[in-house]
Design a protein around this nucleic acid. Structure first.
Length: 372
RNA sequence: GUGGAUGUAGCUCAAUGGCAGAGCACCUGAUUGUGGUUCAGGCGGUUGAGGGUUCGAGCCCCUUCAUCCACC
């Protein structure tokens, strides 16, 4: 059992690689759909395999609250529990503590909070997060960090220091990377000096992977790109870089062309729940009345299971709040992002990433009124 | 046929005789380390019809139409 990362091709700053994990190899760049409660909502493993998904993210915070990490452990671990035999990544639970729960107290040791489910008082700190993630048994686990608003310097600076101390404690609590690889997380908001400082600190920890956190949380796309420009050159070359919580199709382009290897995002399934779909001509909102009698499939340039249904029918399912709407749109949106990343991997190997990126962005970012 | 009640936005309903409103629906937009939510904005009216009183009527008076209920 090992976590080796091989880089198989480069195109400028972008890389294509293979990450070996106990549950299989992950071709990178890779996009990981996110699942609450240990499963990708509305899309079963059978479909994810059919879509050639190589990695999924499961949420530590959600599983900790329900059904509980010890139950998952007793049921044979997350892979067996959700019947997914491919690689799994768990987040630390920290982000949701800050975004979903009512914080009671944050101190240098950890966070006391109230569950958003039943209001009960809970505690999370580096050691607890490591223990939970060990019980869950994912292939890749994340350090417990603090993700503040990205543009308040004092708060960001304090969060960087705190996240660094917490990373050291995670390292102590999780010395064995053979079965589970621990990834550290770079913070620093939109401030270049803080990012550089954090990147160097995390790089010195000799981790199996390094994540860039604290982005896609309210800053502009230009700020995110600039932050990546400041951060990625400070990271070691031979270690996978993971941009957390990203993202939208254009963000994946910007990340990959700068050398990001891994992404996760809720957006394909969240958009599905909101009745929206990715297409090569941009995002569409199926609630729009203009699709009422549209017989075309969602995206003429992406053939998948959902293609056999008309936009008019899918719109009807969305408006009627039918469960099938969430399923079909999730399937389509996950497929869109997976194929998009796969195309970029192939383009890197062929030395044509910039050409692909330019063509993709030109179409995808066209103003809506120009769409067919 | 008699008595009573009710007629206001697509729907359900507000509005001392003083700028005709809300919720839902409909039409847009937002949502980036998951709760289908939520948020922001927009369209929407000859107050059933006709007449009268009044400075001013959705509201008061008369006529009429429609719907519902009760009783012949």
């Amino acid at each position: 059992m090992s976590f080796e990362f091989e880089i198989v091709a480069r195109d400028g700053s972008a890389r294509a690689g293979i990450l070996h994990t106990p549950h299989g190899d992950i071709p990178t760049p890779v996009f990981a759909p996110v699942g609450t409660s240990g499963t990708v909502k509305a899309v079963p493993p059978r479909d994810l395999r059919a879509l050639d998904i190589h990695l999924i993210l499961a949420n530590t915070y959600h599983l900790y609250l329900r059904p509980g990490d010890e139950l998952v452990r007793d049921m044979g671990g997350l892979h067996r529990f959700m019947n997914w035999d491919g690689p799994i990544l768990t987040d630390s639970g920290g982000f949701q503590v800050f975004s979903l729960s009512e914080i009671n107290e944050i101190d240098d040791h950890g966070v006391t909070f109230r569950s958003h489910l039943d209001g009960s008082v809970m505690r999370l700190d580096p050691a607890i997060s490591m223990a939970i993630q060990q019980n869950l048994g994912a292939d890749i686990i994340m350090a417990f960090d603090q993700c503040p608003p990205p543009d308040e310097r004092e708060e960001v600076s304090a969060a960087v220091e705190r996240s660094h101390r917490w990373l050291a404690r995670c390292r102590e609590a999780h010395p064995n990377d053979d079965e589970q690889a621990l990834f550290g997380i770079v913070q620093g908001g939109v401030f270049p000096d803080l990012r550089e400082k954090s990147a160097r600190f995390v790089s010195d920890m000799d981790l199996k992977g390094i994540a860039i956190g604290g982005l896609a949380v309210g800053e502009t796309k230009a700020e995110m790109a600039a932050t990546l420009d400041h951060t990625l050159p400070c990271l070691p070359d031979g270690v996978p870089r993971y941009l957390m919580g990203v993202g939208e199709p254009d963000d994946l382009v910007e990340g990959i062309r700068r050398g990001v290897d891994m992404f996760d995002c809720v957006i394909p399934t969240r958009l599905a729940r909101h009745g929206a779909a990715f297409t090569h001509d941009g995002r569409i909102n199926l609630r729009n009345a203009r699709f009422k009698r549209d017989e075309a499939p969602l995206d003429a340039h992406l053939n998948n299971y959902t293609s056999q249904f008309s936009r008019a029918y899918l719109r009807h399912l969305v408006v009627a709040k039918e469960l099938l709407a969430y399923y079909l749109l999730s399937l389509h949106n996950i497929d869109f992002l997976a194929r998009h990343v796969e195309n970029m991997r192939r383009a890197i190997i062929e030395g044509k990433l910039q050409k692909y990126a330019a063509q993709f962005l030109t179409r995808f970012m066209r103003p809506p009124e120009a769409h067919p």
